[in-house]
Write a protein that binds this DNA or RNA. Structure first.
Lengths: 154, 154
DNA sequence: AGGCCAACGTTGGTGCGACCAACGATAGCG
DNA sequence: CGCTATCGTTGGTCGCACCAACGTTGGCCT
């Protein structure tokens, strides 16, 4: 149970004007979703942008910090902090790129791959909890609509 | 045009693993939507939680600060700051509730009503921009799904 | 009546995420 | 060679959500 005080996140009594407004609903949904998943994820040892970074390296191979950031829409300066954490957990390694000494070559470790699949399971679990009330069709609908919203057909 | 540097919000190159994950898509969608609307709204003189508060008072009439916060899922302490701003803009008035001296009776001013309808127009414009690629049916679908996500069982 | 608990508004502080400015180092190109 | 751009890094700002504590006030119970 959350509901210490303060917010209570009832929000069923919000003005009708707000229900039906996409930007409002998106904000609320994102807040609730993150709140719901965070509990699951932090208990799995996952922080900040861990998952996105690990998934990016896993899919595209070792890359420079700036490139990872560009793929994820994360600022270079914020990437530094994330990678510091990931490195101190032993999930990634940073070494100077031999072909361009400005770049760091960020690579996954074995522990990093293990963490990624642990996070995969934790996220799947959290999403299931978030979407209990939805049929598979509806989940696909939601994902499809959100994908188009995030990535407008160029 | 934003794209000063840093983020660039391309994110078309994000790993496939992330596309299809609700919590990730929700976060991105909310970020993009807010970013898109904020530009419109700040130019209309709207800040922070202005719209939600004004809309709440407009629909339910004058109310205590804590009640507005409860309806919107906003902490009491944050409400204070929002109402300070709204008051200094002349959009609301605070007076002590005569029946319960703990409460403040927060009421809309004429200027507040005017601001609310200005914000209404600005938001409608922003949402149209956000949802250009969507048919009316799809917009309704999206809103319906998000509503159920925000407002789970009963 | 008195005593206890809950709610109110307010202050102050925390943490997180996004963003921006600047630096030294390095690469590419004219 | 200079000029410009990119890289990683540091440090700082802003907004939002959250929490703890306080003094005030109301409601309730015995």
């Amino acid at each position: 149970m959350i509901s210490h005080d303060s917010c209570e996140q009832d929000q069923s009594g919000a003005p009708r004007r707000l229900w039906g407004m996409t930007f409002w609903l998106l904000g609320r949904a994102a807040r609730n979703a993150q709140q719901l998943t965070q509990e699951q994820l932090t208990s799995a040892g996952m922080r900040r942008g861990f998952y996105g970074v690990l998934a990016t390296i896993a899919e595209f191979g070792p890359a420079a910090q700036a490139e990872i950031g560009r793929r994820l829409g994360i600022d270079r300066s914020d990437m530094v902090a994330i990678l510091n954490d990931l490195e101190s957990e032993g999930f990634i390694t940073r070494e100077q790129d031999s072909t361009d000494r400005r770049r760091n070559r960020v690579a996954l470790t074995r522990a990093g791959r293990g963490a990624l699949s642990r996070f995969d399971r934790a996220i799947a679990e959290a999403e299931d909890k978030l979407l209990t009330a939805f049929t598979l069709d509806e989940r696909a609908q939601l994902v499809g609509l959100l994908e188009r919203l995030v990535q407008p057909p160029q």
